[in-house]
């Protein structure tokens, strides 16, 4: 589904990613871990197409298509979803209007009929129940005045609405209390099918107790330095990242 080959990227002239290789297949859950500043969020943003990040080398194909030819909204409509580490507030734009536009843009892209207001509201009710999001939130402006936990729940709710084939969850666990973490994880697990895939970007192992990964990768100084099964996450939890740095001979 997603193939990243020898990816280099920089932010404000500074090299952050230095040769990433990663393949994600349908039905898989990948966790990308690593210490602060290792490039985790950069990778997530490069995948989504943020213009602040400049790709200098390498390729990314998504469902066989070169992703660099696509603007961020096309990538989204191709089925790539980013759950933001810091969801953006958009004053005055109601959640309903925002999501209705998003959902219908996706449908138009797939040559499907746009949803009527009634159908849309019905869909929204279903999904809201599924991710246990407070009804009140959808009556407000996008992320405006939401608490940290509400913002993250809102991201998962949007994911439920848009049903992406590849979901990238950027530090979705940060700033969540245990109940919110459970709700968010439940949402992610519930949306999992054999046809879609998930990339969890996280600093801590905590989230992986709830969403069990098939593969764990350690990102360090812009490269994936270690890949293994879920047991790697547990090892990191116990020992921290230092032993990996030592292994790398630093």
């Amino acid at each position: 589904m997603l193939v990243i080959k020898d990816l280099y990227a920089k932010v404000e002239g500074k090299d952050i990613l230095k040769g990433i290789n990663l393949t994600v297949n349908a039905g898989e859950v990948h966790a990308i871990m690593g210490p602060n500043g290792s490039g985790k969020s950069t990778l997530a943003n490069v995948l989504a197409g943020h213009t602040n990040f400049e790709v200098t080398h390498g390729s990314i194909t998504f469902n066989g298509k070169d992703i660099f030819d696509m603007s961020p909204d096309i990538r989204a409509k191709e089925g790539l979803f980013l759950s933001f580490q810091y969801p953006v507030e958009i004053p005055g734009v109601s959640m309903v209007n925002f999501l209705k536009t998003a959902v219908n843009e996706h449908r138009k892209y797939r040559n499907e009929k746009e949803l009527t207001a009634g159908d849309f509201l019905k869909l929204m009710r279903e999904k809201k129940a599924m991710v246990q999001i407070d009804s009140q939130l959808t009556n407000r402006s996008v992320n405006e005045g939401f608490s940290g936990g509400e913002k993250k729940k809102n991201e998962i709710f949007q994911m439920a609405m848009l049903e992406p084939t590849l979901a990238i969850l950027d530090e979705t666990d940060s700033g969540l209390d245990i109940d919110a973490l459970r709700i968010v994880s439940n949402g992610v697990n519930m949306l999992k099918t054999k046809d879609n895939a998930t990339i969890l970007v996280t600093h801590y192992q905590r989230l992986l107790d709830y969403i069990v990964p098939d593969f764990v990768h350690v990102l360090y100084e812009g490269r994936i330095v270690k890949s293994a099964g879920k047991e790697l996450a547990i090892e990191i939890e116990e020992k921290g990242y230092d032993w990996i740095k030592k292994e790398l001979g630093e």
Binding site: N52, P72, F84, I90, G92, N97, F98, A102, E105, L162
Partner: peptide, 24 residues
């Protein structure tokens, strides 16, 4: 720019995003 990118990421084109944000 972050607001526009956020809309883009949800599949909304920049043009629509701006219209939406201005109306908001």
């Amino acid at each position: 720019e972050d607001q526009i990118f956020y809309c883009n990421q949800r599949g909304i084109s920049t043009e629509d995003a701006i219209g939406m944000i201005v109306n908001g």
